[in-house]
């Protein structure tokens, strides 16, 4: 590629990044606007952050949202990890593929369908719509991603580790806790992170299965945005953006261990291919 083309490519990438980040920085910029709207910047102020700090209802919702994400990710990780083990140790490729396809149904379903069908499900069972129904839904749609994060680690594990543990007299549960779980931990952590963000990100499912008593941030913003603009929301987005940055950086460092190993095995298999040629 010659220099001129390279420069055009970089310009194009630069434009895409500007497009991707402009709305986010727009929100952040106007959170400091004394003018009270997102139309013209009239002066610097922190009053919306102060208003946010005094808005106990909104802060309560933020706490609830994070609590929900924390709990649902935790439960989904436990169930999903054992689910991945179940799929991995199922005999027969065909059976495994059937289980995996069923696992992926909720991954590909539109969230409106998940929300509507869960709403019918809770109504049929007579479960009232509150924190519990939202929590159950979030656990339910987070399980498949945990399974997908843990499965590759199980595949990487050397099966003779389990034979060795059994020869040394370990019981089944000891094998699980002392051999399998420690080995797949990077996958479990990645799964937890993904489940956490799925929960934080969700709007549609929560919108369907939540009742009057419980609200998450996304649902609250939806109802506030319909009434127009309030810069408190901007202040909140700024804080959430910073939080996401921290999460992403944390995730990046954790997944580094994962990818470098994957990279290594990829390089190794390439080397083997070259050797055989």
């Amino acid at each position: 590629m010659n220099k001129r083309k390279g420069r055009l490519a970089n310009l194009y990438l630069f434009m895409v990044f500007v497009l991707l980040y402009l709305p986010i920085f727009y929100l952040i910029f106007y959170s400091f606007n004394a003018g009270g709207n997102m139309n013209g910047f009239t002066g610097f102020t922190l009053e919306y952050y102060q208003a946010l700090a005094e808005d106990t209802r909104l802060l309560g919702i933020v706490v609830d949202t994070f609590l929900l994400a924390f709990l649902s990710a935790l439960l989904a990780t436990v169930i999903g990890t054992f689910g991945a083990m179940m799929i991995f140790y199922t005999r027969g490729r065909k059976n495994r593929n059937v289980l995996l396809s069923m696992n992926n149904i909720l991954m590909v379903s539109p969230d409106v369908i998940i929300g509507a069908s869960f709403l019918i499900f809770f109504t049929v069972l007579g479960i009232s719509l509150n924190f519990l129904s939202v929590l159950l839904s979030h656990v339910a749609f987070s399980i498949p991603i945990v399974v997908l994060m843990v499965l590759p680690r199980l595949k990487e594990m050397n099966p003779s580790l389990i034979d060795a543990a059994r020869d040394l007299g370990a019981t089944n549960w000891q094998i699980i806790y002392k051999v399998i779980i420690p080995f797949v931990t990077p996958g479990i952590i990645a799964g937890y992170f993904m489940a956490f963000t799925y929960s934080l990100d969700d709007f549609a499912v929560t919108f369907f299965v939540t009742g009057n008593g419980f609200s998450t941030l996304a649902v609250e913003i939806y109802s506030r945005a319909r009434q127009g603009i309030s810069l408190e929301i901007n202040a909140l987005s700024t804080l959430l953006f910073l939080f996401s940055m921290i999460l992403v950086i944390g995730y990046y460092f954790i997944s580094q261990g994962n990818t470098s190993k994957k990279q290594k095995s990829l390089n190794k298999s390439r080397q083997e291919a070259i050797d055989t040629l």
Binding site: P23, M38, F203, I233, F241, V248
Partner: peptide, 26 residues
Amino acid sequence: LIILPTWINLLLKAYAFIGIFSVNGT
């Protein structure tokens, strides 16, 4: 950097565009 914006809640991004596109907006 491409993935990072997907971690911002959808509603917040929609909300930003309400400001950008509004009659008196940017």
